[in-house]
Design a protein around this nucleic acid. Sequence first.
DNA 1: AAGAGTTCTTGACAAATGGCAAGAAATCAA
DNA 2: TTGATTTCTTGCCATTTGTCAAGAACTCTT
Lengths: 193, 193
Amino acid sequence: MDKSILNHYFHSLFPIEKEVVEKITHSFNHFHLNKNAILLDENTVSTKTYFLEKGYMRSFIFNEEGEEVTTNIYSAPCFVNDFLSFFKQQPTRQIYQTLSPCSFWETSIDHVQANFHNIPEFREFSRLLFVINYHELNERLIEMASQKAETRYVNLLEKKPEIFQHVPLKIIASYLGITDSSLSRIRKEISTV
Amino acid sequence: MDKSILNHYFHSLFPIEKEVVEKITHSFNHFHLNKNAILLDENTVSTKTYFLEKGYMRSFIFNEEGEEVTTNIYSAPCFVNDFLSFFKQQPTRQIYQTLSPCSFWETSIDHVQANFHNIPEFREFSRLLFVINYHELNERLIEMASQKAETRYVNLLEKKPEIFQHVPLKIIASYLGITDSSLSRIRKEISTV
DNA sequence: AAGAGTTCTTGACAAATGGCAAGAAATCAA
DNA sequence: TTGATTTCTTGCCATTTGTCAAGAACTCTT
């Protein structure tokens, strides 16, 4: 099985030796999922770390009113991890669902723990991944708190144009914190300017 | 100097031996700041990790329109860390400001790095802190995307009532993603029900 | 205690977004 | 290919939140 995309991801994030990456990814297994499959369901404990090699997916949650709220949209290549559930080994409230046919690499919490404590470079990598994810979340929060929907839409269009080809608008709307009707109106508004 | 609050914080998060905690906090130094002081300014690189022992503070950012957006409100005891700036050693866009007289413990990135690579328990602790912070951010994002301002206000009132005694309403409003006028109206609305 | 500066409240109005329902368009499954 | 299902758009109207400005209340400094 060709691990080049997975291995390359490590090199793309920070300088790390080829041999170390191969040692880290040695325990990863490959698998596929169809469109609209559930990678990780709510109320279950995440026991794996996933690397999305190809495809699109999202995480979402049912809020108090029972409405779906899309919490994140993932486009390959990237790691997909429910940090809280995985590292605290507790049930997640989020659902991770594929939005297209997807291919993954996965490894278990035991391997992650072993690597974390035995391979200094992996520790640094893990932390960097955390920092990047935390920062992205923070940026989204700032946008939510201070920009109107139209601005958030335009920014997303600029930052992640590819998702508009692969993700239904109602999911993008929910990710932006608006209704699909509002998104539709915003798109109409912008296209006629 | 009495490190009991600092040391206790480690024990409160997860099981860890007294001796290990003391080894970790050995390098921490104590200091004070007045109200409205700047702990970490924008465009500077964070070289310290801070533990807020006593007091209240916030982080904020100037958005594209030059308006202040409060990104977080901190009430002791807790760690205060600009993850992106500290771990990637790059300038931050955020400003960390005290909202009351505060006392801190600080330690340098060099000590953090040494502990991270030499003390397994510290690695676990660091990661846990990340996980908790990430989760809190994610919960706030979900609220922002799916609840109206009044609900967000009521939730905050329930979750962190103490900040309403120590933090100006205009800062809380900004933290909730609304204007101070709106917050004022919401408060009036609720008090008369 | 006085004055300056800041924060909070309020009113009038405007802008942004939501709720609902219906139809159009696109997608999916057999 | 066809029918069923889902997604997207649109209109109408309601609700929420913002903007601006003025005054009241509060806080800080001297």
